[in-house]
């Protein structure tokens, strides 16, 4: 069972990234839930979402103590870093969050996702780069399977978008 919390600013594609994780789970017959923290602001405010992927029916859909935290801004890092379960995983966008965790009971991964996106002319796709990193470090899904499911929901008319998503995913997955 994976209790995942994705957190950042509105507009960073937090909810979209969470949805991809849940969608891939559903397509492989897992129990999944996706719960956004919703607010009046659509963009600019803080945004986070709880995603659970499980073999068992899901009780509370609200992830308060995540196994995995994907942080895309400093407020989220500060707010949730200490909530990660012992033995859990932190994936932090180090181009936006200069802080490192002091915790020794979790595995922490730092990836300059926003910078990588800008360098590769896919700005705005740091969220997908983070998903690539998630797959690399957790093995939650097979890489090829996830790539297929994620791009499969994009209509063929937006072919360019498919290529960009694949590129972003691969950058995250191959970043060491």
């Amino acid at each position: 069972m994976y209790n995942i919390l994705l957190a950042g600013f509105g507009g960073q594609g937090i909810l979209f990234a969470g949805k991809q994780i849940a969608y891939a789970g559903m397509k492989s017959d897992k129990e999944v839930s996706w719960l956004p923290s919703y607010g009046p602001e659509m963009r600019g405010g803080t945004a986070n979402c709880s995603v659970i992927v499980s073999d068992e029916p899901i009780g509370s859909p609200l992830v308060t103590d995540p196994d995995i935290l994907i942080a895309l801004n400093l407020p989220s890092f500060e707010k949730f870093e200490n909530k990660i379960k012992a033995g859990g995983i932190l994936i932090s966008d180090s181009s936006l969050i200069s802080k490192k965790t002091d915790r020794t009971d979790i595995q922490a991964y730092y990836i300059p996702a926003t910078e990588l996106a800008n360098q590769n002319e896919i700005s705005g796709m740091a969220n997908v780069i983070m998903l690539g990193k998630l797959i690399q470090v957790t093995g939650i899904y097979d890489y090829n399977y996830f790539e297929e499911v994620m791009t499969g929901s994009i209509p063929p008319s937006k072919e360019r978008l498919i290529a960009l998503n694949k590129k972003a995913l691969s950058i995250g997955y191959n970043y060491r």
Partner: peptide, 10 residues
Amino acid sequence: DGALGQMMEP
């Protein structure tokens, strides 16, 4: 409630 309205499940 707001949570059920906003959350996604299969």
